[in-house]
Simulated scan of single mutants.
Amino acid sequence: MNLQDHTTERFLNQHKTIKSYIDDLPPEAIYSRLSADKFSIHETIAYLTRYHHVFIYRLKSIIKEVNPFFEIYKPDYDPEFGFSCAKSTGSLLHEMYRLREEICALLEKADEECASRVGTHAVLGRMTISQWTEFFLLHESTQLFKIFKLAGSFWSMKTEQHSNVIHLPRLTNYLDELAV
């Protein structure tokens, strides 16, 4: 499929920024919710990983069916989301990288005829595969910004709230090895 070069570049690399956002964080910063009603960093990564599965399903449906309809994805109604949350952050990143490659292969296989195929989103309406890919990237970037803000918020909290946190630089290859 012929996506625009800048879209392809973002699709190949955008998700890789997560590692730089969380590299120096202790586990309590990744796994703890800073607000009871908002996802933790780990839960947001689980959500992004799970959404890769949802996107693959949607792409395959658009390729096989005539204008399939998709509701808004809500993790609260997805029984698989709990299983994603139960995984470690490293394994989620590894899975996300693998799924990203799978999506890339799926998009590469889609010929020009598939490019004109559409699927309808409950809120965003009718979109081509190219538009669905752009939506995926925009949605992902919103989640990446949430992770970025949560990581910064952890360190900006009052010192006494995490005075028992030992800040050690992480082994740089640890997540790389799991996420590649």
Score class of each variant (00 low, 15 high):
Ala110Trp: 08
Ser153Ala: 14
Pro75Arg: 07
Ala46Thr: 03
Lys38Val: 09
Ser61Cys: 08
Leu144Phe: 12
Gln131Asn: 08
Arg98Thr: 12
Arg117Leu: 13
Val180Ile: 11
Ser84Ile: 02
Asp176Ala: 10
His121Asn: 04
Phe83Lys: 15
Glu71Met: 09
Phe83Trp: 04
Ser130Ile: 10
Pro79Val: 06
Glu9Tyr: 13
Glu160Pro: 06
Leu48Ser: 02
Ala29Val: 09
Ser40Asp: 06
Leu99Arg: 08
Arg100Gln: 13
Ala29Gln: 15
Cys114Phe: 15
Ala122Cys: 03
Gln14Tyr: 07
Glu65Thr: 09
Arg33Phe: 04
Thr128Lys: 04
Ile129Cys: 12
Glu80Asn: 15
Ile63Met: 06
Glu65Val: 08
Lys19Gly: 00
Glu140Val: 00
Leu93Asp: 09
Ile18Val: 04
Leu34Gly: 11
Leu25Asn: 10
Leu59Ser: 03
Thr128Met: 08
Asn164Ala: 14
Lys109Gln: 13
Cys85Lys: 14
Trp132Cys: 02
Tyr51Asn: 09
Leu144Ser: 09
Ala46Ile: 02
Glu112Leu: 08
Leu171Lys: 15
Ala110Thr: 12
Ala105Ser: 14
Leu175Ser: 06
Met127Cys: 06
Ile103Ser: 04
Arg50Cys: 14
Arg98Lys: 09
Met1Lys: 00
Asp111Gly: 15
Leu93Ala: 07
Leu106Ala: 02
Thr17Phe: 13
Asn2Ile: 05
Thr128Arg: 01
His167Asp: 00
Ser91Asp: 10
Ala46Gly: 03
His6Ile: 13
Leu48Met: 15
Asp176Arg: 06
Leu107Asp: 03
Leu137Ser: 07
Ile45Phe: 04
Ile129Gly: 10
Lys16Ile: 00
Thr17Ile: 07
Phe154Met: 07
Glu160His: 05
His167Trp: 10
Asp24Met: 11
Ala122Pro: 04
His52Gly: 09
Thr17Arg: 15
Leu34Phe: 10
Gln14Cys: 01
Ser32Thr: 03
Phe11Gly: 02
Gln14Ile: 06
His121Glu: 07
Ser32Gln: 12
Tyr73His: 02
Thr172Gly: 11
Leu99Gln: 14
Thr89Pro: 06
Glu140Asn: 07
Asn13Arg: 09
Leu34Ile: 10
Ser130Ala: 15
Asp23Leu: 10
Arg10Val: 02
Ala36Pro: 10
Pro26Glu: 05
Glu177Gln: 09
Ala179Ser: 15
Phe83Arg: 11
Tyr73Gln: 01
Asn13Ile: 01
Leu178Pro: 03
Asp111Thr: 08
Arg100Trp: 01
Leu92Ile: 08
Ile22Tyr: 07
Tyr47Trp: 01
Val118Tyr: 13
Pro68Ile: 01
Tyr97Trp: 06
Ala151Val: 05
Glu108Tyr: 09
Ser141Thr: 12
Ser141Tyr: 01
Ser20Cys: 02
Thr49Arg: 05
Ala29Arg: 09
Glu134Leu: 13
Lys74Asp: 12
Glu108Ala: 15
Lys38His: 14
Thr49Gln: 07
Arg58Tyr: 04
Leu34Tyr: 03
